[in-house]
């Protein structure tokens, strides 16, 4: 085994440099700056002074925000994966209607989350479209701005399930048709083909989609701000509010909140990478 780089890999690394360098520089600079600001070493005004107040001052609220964000991201991710996989399986098994579903899914992707959140608000709010459709019953649940972040999760699940479906289709659509034909001649029913062939083949793309959806919904601001309750605040809502506060002393707290989001995202990414490696080693 050798760790030496061959001329080929060195050349490839040089070619990748223009793309990788800006990412590394921006990421490193922003993370270091956020860390320094959260610790009082890069204050907006006044002399630098090391302090952990931004992290420990209101730790309960920070933890509640973190739990709210993880809850929203987890439920949204699970729903997106489930709906996205069903959509992909439908497209693969129903060529004609599937094409329509695929087109609708593709059309969903470019809609901005802000527009999507507005649409979901109009649909699910009190006296919204759905409420009116049902005759405005008294028992209509508080989906928008209510407990459980249901409207936020609905918006994410709608948008991200289309994304998941397209990722899954892109990764397996070329091979899965022939493999399903082979499975059919081996006695597998339509349901068995989906569960025993399509699903296992889709696991890597589902895992990658899952981590992308989780990290995105963890750090996304607009839907949670527009459709979520005032309290508890999800991490990105809290970070933006504190960052935009007239109280400049709140900046370190905003940075600490943002860094917690980054840390949770990093843990999620590493967990999926670890699980994917284990999955591939089993194959």
């Amino acid at each position: 085994m050798t760790s030496r780089m061959t001329p080929g890999t060195g050349h490839a690394a040089l070619l990748a440099l223009p793309a990788v360098l800006p990412i590394v520089v921006v990421l490193a600079v922003s993370l270091v700056a956020a860390a320094l600001q959260s610790l009082g070493l890069m204050p907006f005004i006044g002399p630098p002074q090391l302090s952990g107040d931004a992290w420990t001052g209101d730790v309960q609220t920070l933890v509640r925000s973190g739990l709210a964000s993880v809850y929203i991201a987890s439920i949204s991710t699970v729903l997106s994966l489930a709906v996205g996989f069903v959509l992909a399986a439908y497209v693969l098994t129903m060529p004609r209607m599937g094409r329509l579903v695929e087109t609708l899914s593709a059309a969903t992707i470019p809609i901005p989350h802000l527009i999507g959140a507005g649409a979901i608000g109009l649909l699910l709010s009190d006296s919204g479209f759905l409420d009116r459709l049902l005759g405005m019953p008294d028992s209509f649940p508080a989906l928008v701005a209510g407990p459980g972040f249901l409207a936020v999760i609905a918006e994410y699940a709608w948008k991200e399930s289309a994304f998941v479906a397209l990722v899954v289709l892109g990764s397996i659509s070329r091979s899965v048709g022939d493999l399903c034909d082979a499975a059919a001649t081996l006695g597998a029913t339509a349901g068995q083909r989906i569960l025993r062939v399509v699903l296992p083949l889709a696991v890597p793309s589902l895992a990658i989609s899952a981590v992308i959806v989780f990290v995105y919904t963890l750090g996304s601001y607009e839907a949670a701000w527009l459709l979520g309750p005032v309290s508890p605040e999800p991490l990105p809502v809290r970070a933006v509010r504190l960052f935009g506060s007239v109280d400049l002393a709140a900046r370190p707290q905003a940075m600490a909140t943002a860094l917690v989001t980054v840390a949770v995202s990093a843990v999620a990414i590493l967990a999926v990478v670890f699980l994917l490696r284990r999955f591939r080693s089993l194959r």
Binding site: D178, T185, V197, P200, R283
Partner: peptide
């Protein structure tokens, strides 16, 4: 009659083994 109920097996040009 659906393929899975015909009792007819087919070996394709490509082996099409399930990679998982």
């Amino acid at each position: 009659v659906p393929s899975e109920q015909r009792g007819i097996a087919l070996v394709f040009q490509k082996p099409l083994l399930f990679p998982h």
